[in-house]
Amino acid sequence: MSTICVYCGSSSGTDGAFALMAEALGTAIVEAGHRLVYGGGDVGLMGIVADAVLAAGGDVIGVITEQLLALEVGHDGLTELEVLPNMHSRKARMAELADGIVVLPGGFGTYEEAFEVLTWNQLGIISSPVVFLDVTLGDAEQSFYDPLFDFIDGATAAGFMKPQHGVLAQRAVTPAEAVSIAAGPAPEFTRKWVG
């Protein structure tokens, strides 16, 4: 059994497609025989993913800060809830527990967490696959993560990262694909400053 970490919004977003994808991801984690670790909240996409895992009979470990728990956003129905003093220890603990990471849409906190673990992979501190689970909204000509991957491609083309590091950010369009990538091997490590 792998432990899949999910980073996602503490809001549900403005389109119902976000919530549907979060629920489907939670179900897919359990169907693949894995457990969930996440930020411990019962709000937004966070709560939807956790509830979907629990509803499917899976295990959920929440990792939350004392501050957030005091604001009463902690989920009280989890298999396990770890309460840590600050965001730094929370993020380190989630990465320690995770075999792989799936990133759903969210705000600054979601992307800060995702880019930190991508950086840790780039530096060889950890070796965990990171996959962004994309969401297509209605009749939109682009999917949610198109601009993010354009940005990563642009940073690579401009020489700010090696192509081997740009591909550390993987992408999936279905929950099953995202779980498969997250539970699989991480991309091969390439030293940042050599070669």
Results as ranks from 00 to 15, higher is better:
Asp150Val: 12
Ser11Asp: 13
Val37Met: 05
Cys5Val: 05
Gly40His: 03
Asp134Arg: 07
Ala176Ser: 11
Val63Arg: 07
Glu177Asn: 00
Asp146Lys: 14
His75Pro: 06
Lys192Asn: 10
Arg90Thr: 06
Met87Thr: 11
Ile152Asn: 04
Gly39Asn: 08
Ala28Ile: 10
Leu54Tyr: 02
Met46Ile: 03
Lys91Met: 10
Val173Ser: 06
Glu80Lys: 11
Pro185Gln: 15
Arg93Gly: 07
Glu177Val: 02
Lys192His: 11
Val43Glu: 00
Gly39Glu: 04
Gly44Ala: 12
Asp42Ile: 11
Leu45Phe: 12
Pro129Gln: 11
Gly159Lys: 10
Val49Pro: 07
Val194Ser: 11
Val37Asp: 03
Ala92Leu: 14
Val102Phe: 13
Thr174Ile: 13
Thr174Ala: 12
Ala172Ile: 13
Gly33Ala: 10
Ile4Arg: 05
Pro129Val: 10
Val73Ile: 15
Val43Pro: 01
Cys8Gly: 03
Ala32Ser: 15
Gln142Lys: 11
Val37Gln: 03
Tyr145Pro: 11
Ser128Phe: 00
Ala95Pro: 07
Tyr145Ala: 11
Ile152Ser: 06
Phe160Val: 06
Gly39Leu: 06
Glu96Trp: 13
Leu137Ala: 01
Asp139Ala: 14
Gly195Met: 04
Val6Leu: 04
Tyr7Glu: 04
Ala32His: 15
Gly107Glu: 02
Lys91Gln: 09
Gly41Pro: 00
Thr14Phe: 13
His75Gly: 05
Met21Tyr: 03
Asp15Lys: 15
Lys162Asn: 04
His75Glu: 05
Gly44Met: 12
Ala50Phe: 06
Thr3Met: 13
Gln122Thr: 07
Glu116Leu: 12
Thr3Val: 15
His75Leu: 05
Cys5Glu: 04
Val194Tyr: 11
Thr156Ile: 04
Ala19Asp: 09
Ala169Ile: 00
Val37Phe: 05
Ile101Arg: 05
Gln170Asp: 06
Thr110His: 13
Pro105Asp: 10
Val43Leu: 02
Pro85Arg: 10
Asp153Ser: 15
Gly159Arg: 09
Val6Glu: 01
Cys5Lys: 03
Leu68Met: 15
Ala55Thr: 09
Ile48Met: 14
Ala169Val: 01
Ala157Thr: 14
Tyr38Ile: 02
Glu82Ser: 03
Gly16Asp: 14
Ile4Lys: 07
Thr65Asn: 03
Glu80Tyr: 01
Ile126Gly: 00
Arg90Trp: 09
Arg93Asp: 04
Met87Pro: 13
Gly16Leu: 07
Gly62Tyr: 09
Ile61Phe: 01
Tyr111Pro: 03
Ala176Glu: 15
Arg35Leu: 03
Lys192Pro: 00
Thr136Leu: 11
Thr27Lys: 14
Ile61Cys: 05
Leu84Asn: 07
